[in-house]
Design a protein around this nucleic acid. Structure first.
Length: 612
RNA sequence: GGGCCCGUAGCUCAGUUGGAUAGAGCAGCAGCCUUCUAAGCUGCUGGUCGCAGGUUCGAAUCCUGCCGGGCUCGCCA
């Protein structure tokens, strides 16, 4: 991804706002730097002590437009250390900032806020660069930092994905796209849980279907095996490959082959579901590959030995959990990882009683592998039911990376599936639960993706199958996509009104943007200017839902402006009698459209040209 | 019993990572809308931010303790 560089453009003839922001389009970063400079000057002059930390100084948008465009907390944050009071310090700073040609007004407010009102040219300058940048507006410059590893989905290969998996999938996918857009290198990873007892159960279930495929009457699927129909095709393909040769043989002779075939079948199905959702991964990492099978080196053993050599593993006993039925609690000595040294509540076992590795042991090795492969920053996306597992994994990452690695676990809460407000039951018992695929097929990928991300990850989510296909204001998916389509429609109308008109971004960027003076227009331009900051904040907080909310708000503001044109024809985007004004408005619409498309792209939702 | 997450308008939820008078959408109320850009528009009402303390210039946000709901608690993954 290369980013257009415009630094070499001659700036002398342009308004100062543009000159500045064509280089650094994040308005807030730019002013943050200017304020630091102003403070440094105050320090150089001896007005404030030298060496103060400006780390807590924040430049942010004002909540109330009456307060201008930017609010600065510097005076309040630094007053105490500077040995003065906030308003006095603010006065010094205001004097300095007022000299900035981009600042129309600098004033002190409340307890010591400094409110800046910027010259209109600043915003038209940003709008202009947004028009030129198009889909790259808001994209962060590529950072030199090491790649971030994002692990998501990681559903067990024992059946089709359900709706809960879908939420994690969309979340992880959108988060990865967001990080990439913000300038990070990202690796998207899926951990295949193909090593535990579950996949043996899967193999037995598949073997039954194999016998069925050979014509045997298998009756009801026994308790404890996977009953779903989805294993039938695995059985059939086993029958095709092996014929009668496995039939009647002891499990030990067919388990490995059948298990491998079943896992392959399940993973093919899962990949297919992910593709239907538009969710992508760079790496599919097999848990089994960490163990000493198929000629692999035993990475789990290696990991355990590494930890043991640092005295982080010991043989000991664990107290039984309190307030829990403990009839079958067997007090025994086991191999424990000193998780408590790294912030966990108890030490955690690494070996099962039969001597095989616990899931946790494998997972430690897996995260160690991530680190060894060059990822110091790791993000895991899990279902909320794994919340109790977070501390031990974070502890393990600290241990295994010698404190150099970090792990952020994002837990996605449950999804309640509704239809017209009535809960759709998802009974897993008979195996006929509602699958993710069924939902995608019913309402479409875009609706699923947008709704899954239109909520904070740690809040439970209601997903109404009826609502998300409504073509109304109440359906956020439609509402946002429609705003984009409406932008495209405006361009079509303009071309009809002015045959042969050149509406390329290059031409639009030269439009007289100072014509855009309506309150609603200015408000939207400021939203466009705030987009890069939102992207930055959402990326560093690992919160992709903010992008969905932003895009929804922008759509709302745009629809509202559009409607204003009903009562005030002079606000209409296409004005047959005024070519100049039309070009300026279309430049504006182009920027709105780009930001909508950009935000939708991060979320992974299509930006349609029309929605008829 | 321990741990983690959540608690914001009647409902569903945001809240820019500690900022100013806490926002939006539904619902409710009041108007407009016999189309001049494509699935209406505008305005109003509505709050002890679960409760009580604490930290500081400043708390829905951070800390502590309660209350309520969810998830979870060795040999599942």
């Amino acid at each position: 991804m290369t980013r257009p560089r415009r630094c070499d453009r001659p700036g002398a003839l342009l308004p100062s706002g543009f000159r500045m922001f064509a280089v650094a389009m994040n308005l807030f970063e730019t002013f943050s730097a200017r304020i630091s400079r102003a403070l440094t000057q105050l320090a150089d002059r001896g007005d404030i002590p030298a060496g103060l930390s400006f780390a807590r100084v924040v430049v942010e948008p004002t909540r109330d437009p009456a307060h201008g465009d930017l609010a600065i907390n510097a005076a309040m944050v630094l007053a105490k250390e500077a040995g003065t009071n906030p308003r006095a310090l603010a006065a010094l700073l205001v004097e300095e900032l007022a000299r900035d040609p981009d600042v129309a007004k600098a004033e002190i407010a409340g307890p010591g806020f400094i409110n800046l009102t910027l010259q209109p040219a600043v915003f038209t300058g940003i709008l202009k660069s947004a028009i030129e940048a198009g889909l790259d507006h808001g994209r962060g410059a590529l950072r030199p930092d090491p790649k971030i590893n994002v692990e998501y989905v990681s559903a067990n290969p024992t059946g089709p994905m359900h709706v809960g998996h879908g939420r994690g999938a969309v979340f992880g996918d959108a988060l990865s796209s967001l990080l990439a857009f913000a300038g990070h290198a990202v690796s998207r990873e899926y951990y295949i849980n193909d090593a535990g007892a579950q996949v043996d159960v899967l193999a037995r279930s598949a073997f039954l279907r194999y016998r069925e495929a050979l014509g045997e009457e298998i009756g009801a699927i026994p308790e404890g095996l996977y009953p779903g129909d989805y294993l039938k095709s695995v059985g059939e393909s086993l029958a095709k490959t092996y014929g009668e040769s496995l039939r009647g043989k002891p499990e030990s002779e067919w388990l490995v082959a059948v298990r491998a075939a079943a896992i392959d079948g399940m993973m093919a199905m899962i990949r297919d579901d992910l593709a239907a959702l538009g969710v992508v991964h760079d790496v599919f990492f097999s848990e089994r590959s960490l163990q000493a099978v198929d000629g692999n080196i035993d990475a789990v053993r290696e990991t355990i030995e590494d930890l043991r050599s640092r005295d982080l593993i010991y043989e000991g006993r664990l107290p039984p959990p309190k307030g829990q039925k403990d009839e079958d609690w067997e007090d025994r000595e086991q191999t424990l990882f000193r998780a408590t040294l790294f912030g966990d509540d108890v030490d955690r076992p690494l070996l099962k009683s039969d001597g095989s590795y616990t899931y946790f042991a494998n997972d430690i090795a897996y995260h160690r592998s991530k680190f060894v492969r060059g990822f110091a920053e790791m993000i895991d996306v899990w279902g909320a039911d794994h919340g109790g597992y977070v501390k031990r994994m974070a502890a393990a990452v600290k241990a295994v990376t010698h404190g150099e690695g970090s792990l952020d676990v994002k837990l996605c809460q449950l999804v309640r599936l509704l239809r017209n407000g009535e809960q759709v039951r998802m009974s897993k018992r008979s195996g006929d639960f509602v699958t993710l695929r069924e939902v995608i097929d019913e309402v479409g990928r875009d609706a699923v993706r947008f709704m899954m991300i239109f909520r904070k990850n740690d809040a439970t989510l209601d997903f109404d199958l009826a609502k998300v296909v409504e073509q109304s204001k109440d359906n956020p998916v439609f509402y946002v996509q429609y705003a984009h389509a409406r932008c495209a429609s405006i361009f079509r109308q303009a071309r009809e009104a002015f045959p042969g008109i050149d509406l390329s971004p290059t031409v639009l960027a030269q439009a007289d943007l100072s014509r855009l003076t309506d309150e609603a227009e200015i408000g939207i331009i400021k939203m466009i200017a705030a987009y890069p900051r939102m992207i930055d904040a959402a990326a560093s907080a690992h919160e992709p839902h903010r992008v969905a909310f932003f895009v929804h708000e922008l759509a709302s503001a745009f629809h509202s402006l559009w409607n204003k044109g009903k009562d005030s024809p002079q606000l209409r985007f296409v004005n047959q009698t005024d070519r100049e004004s039309t070009v300026a408005r279309l430049a504006f619409v182009h920027a709105v459209r780009s930001v909508l498309a950009s935000g939708l792209a991060v979320v992974g939702v299509a930006a349609p040209e029309e929605m008829r």
